[in-house]
Amino acid sequence: MMFCAVVEPLLDLYLDDRLVPVQARWVEKHAARCHACAAKLAAGRRLKAALRGTGAPAMPDGFKARLLALAQAMPSAKALAEELPSPDLRPSAALAFGLAALAVFVSGSLLGPGLPSQACSDSGSSVCFFGGRDK
C-alpha cells in the first residue's frame, strides 16, 4: 500500500505513545485497513513485552557489602583535594611573564639591526648562491 512506507517509521513511536493524537489516529486507521502494518504493529507489541519481561540475574552474594566497604574506604574528592598540596598556580603571574617576553621579542625585532640574510651576506667577498657574487 502506498502509505505503508510513511506509516512504518511511526509504528514504534505509536507503541511508545510518542505521537500526537492526530498521528495516532492516522496510524490506527491505516493499521485497521492494512494487514501488513497491523502485523508489524503486533510484532512490535510482542517485542516490547518480551523485552520488558526479560529477567536479570540477582546480585551475587557479598557484592553489596563490597560496595559498602568501597564507600567506607574511599576518601571523597574534596578530602583528597584538602590532603594533597595543590601547585601554586598564579594565572596573573604567568600572564605578566608572557607579556614581558612578548614585549622583549617585539622591541628586539623593531629596534635591532636585524639578522643577516642567510642567502646573501653584506660583505663583498662572499658568494651569493642565488644571485652570483655580491657587490
Partner: peptide
C-alpha cells in the same frame, strides 16, 4: 560487577 563497581567508585569520588 565491574561496571557497577566502577560507577559507584565515580559516585563516591564525586559525592561532594
Amino acid at each position: 560487577c565491574d561496571l557497577v563497581q566502577e560507577a559507584f567508585l565515580r559516585i563516591i569520588e564525586k559525592k561532594d
